[in-house]
């Protein structure tokens, strides 16, 4: 663990800039991923401004039109502009992805620190629970919970956060375990520092690299899983413009008449997840080489 120092000695803003320049130089593909991801984030944030039409503005006279100047991505079976729907879909995906990943990181920290720092019986119990939890596929757990609480963006973000949070606690635990035995933690403890102080001042700052990588990769995973759920008809209910939902439901039969409808949502999904993955890989290589091949 490099610990504080190096870039952290600069002001936080300047440190971030310096770090990203280093990323651009040594990992061009990762930097490309970061830029693409940022572009999608901005598209999501300003979707209402960027979208030429409303997400659910129907015009039955313009049903199933191929790509044209007025409708670059074409229109669907209700005459809705696909470009607008894809843009607003980006907003939905980004919201779910970011909030689920943020919640997941919080849960991972809570469980991972409890398990790794305190160890003993608590660790044993938590780890057996995580073992059991990880037996069940994410998608299945999600389907089951959604079948009880009903579909909706908030529920999906919370459940996804729980899912990835519990699974990710393993990685945090590993990091905390090795830190716990470090000299500077030992020193703090011998000076009489309490557990809370040690965790906040000495453990958390040092596992930041792990958390940043964990957060990034979870954004991609959450976006992909939400899309799968929407595809199965259990995601954010229509007419919300989800990328997964655009490929399923009543619109699915019309894909044969307007094959272009199948392209944009899937391509966006692939591109954004690809971008997050390569960016996350590059971050991992630069921030914490030990995490290679994990998660």
């Amino acid at each position: 663990m490099s610990g504080p120092g190096g870039a952290a000695a600069l002001r936080p803003g300047a440190a971030a800039v310096a770090f990203n320049l280093r990323l651009l130089r040594s990992k061009p593909l990762g930097a490309f991923g970061g830029v693409v991801f940022l572009a999608f984030l901005l598209c999501g944030a300003f979707a209402e401004v960027l979208a030429p039409y409303g997400a659910n503005a129907t015009d039955l006279a313009l049903r199933l039109q191929g790509p044209s100047a007025a409708h670059p991505f074409g229109t669907d079976h209700l005459g809705r502009d696909l470009l607008s729907r894809v843009l607003l879909g980006a907003q939905l995906s980004m919201l779910v992805g970011a909030s689920a990943a943020a919640l997941a990181t919080l849960i991972s920290v809570a469980l991972g620190v409890a398990s790794g720092y305190f160890g003993g019986r608590i660790d044993m119990l938590i780890q057996r629970f995580v073992d059991a939890w990880m037996l069940f596929p994410d998608l299945l757990l999600l389907i089951a919970v959604i079948s009880v609480v009903g579909p909706g963006m908030v529920q999906i973000s919370i459940v996804l956060g729980l899912l990835y949070g519990i699974a990710g606690s393993r990685i945090v635990r590993g990091a905390v375990l090795s830190l716990r035995e470090n000299m500077h933690v030992e020193a703090a403890r011998s000076l009489g520092a309490g557990a809370g102080h040690i965790v906040v001042r000495h453990i958390l700052p040092n596992i930041m690299p792990v958390l940043i990588v964990l957060f990034t990769t979870r954004v991609g995973a959450a976006i992909l899983t939400e899309a799968g759920l929407s595809f199965l008809g259990l995601g954010v209910p229509p007419p919300a413009p989800t990328w997964g939902g655009m490929l399923s439901g009543p619109g699915r039969t019309y894909l044969y008449l307007g094959p272009w409808l199948a392209l944009a949502p899937g391509l966006c999904l692939t591109l954004v997840v690809y971008a997050v993955n390569v960016y996350g890989d590059a971050l991992r290589d630069l921030l914490d080489p030990r995490m290679r091949g994990v998660g």
């Binding site: 595809f231 199948a262 899937g266 999904l269 692939t270 690809y274 993955n277």
Partner: peptide
């Protein structure tokens, strides 16, 4: 690329 491509999209493409 395969890691990023959702199987339901690939499946849809193969059908359509």
């Amino acid at each position: 690329l395969m890691l990023a491509m959702p199987s339901f999209w690939l499946g849809t493409l193969v059908m359509v």
